[in-house]
Amino acid sequence: MAPFTPGFLGRDRSADTTLPPGQYLTHDFPVLSAGPTPRIPLDRWEFTVMTEAGVVRRWSWAELLALPSETPTVDLHCVTKWSKLSTDWEGVSLDTLLGDVDTAADYALVRSYGGYTTNLPLEDLLDGKAWIAYRYDGEELPSEHGGPARLLIPHLYLWKSAKWVRGIELLIEDEPGFWESLGYHNYGDPWREQRYQGD
């Protein structure tokens, strides 16, 4: 156990049972990103899935909105220590988008407008665990929070929920994304506190 910090009391911990280790509760919605916010006109927006064989499926904005949507209420956990509980989203399940894609891939590399990338096992995108989300709290998703659409994958730290998502590549071999190449954990499970490499 770490040495005590003399005189440090910390916050009231009576309501902490719902937070992963090392997280604190916030009620606002902080913004974190590595560069300027990309602005993508909806008539030029598209979302693609490319298989390991190079087969590409595309959805325009209108085509995405025409797909059946879900309205998950989920908790968000950011590696910078804040957590926000019971957030309301609307989007298309990755089960819907990947359902009839023919692939033997085990990994996915998510690409965003603006150049951001993040990687994760393909199975983490399936079985009701991930969405392409385009509405937040009953409104269109604001650009600083990843609009027009972002990946939402709440069981991993929030950097995996790529903002301004433009596509997913399905890969046989894992390929580290942006933060995963800069010292952050490759998987990022907040309940196991996988913040940085070596955790």
Partner: peptide, 9 residues
Amino acid sequence: IRTERFGPS
């Protein structure tokens, strides 16, 4: 352009 942000929280 590289950015680093902190929020009020």
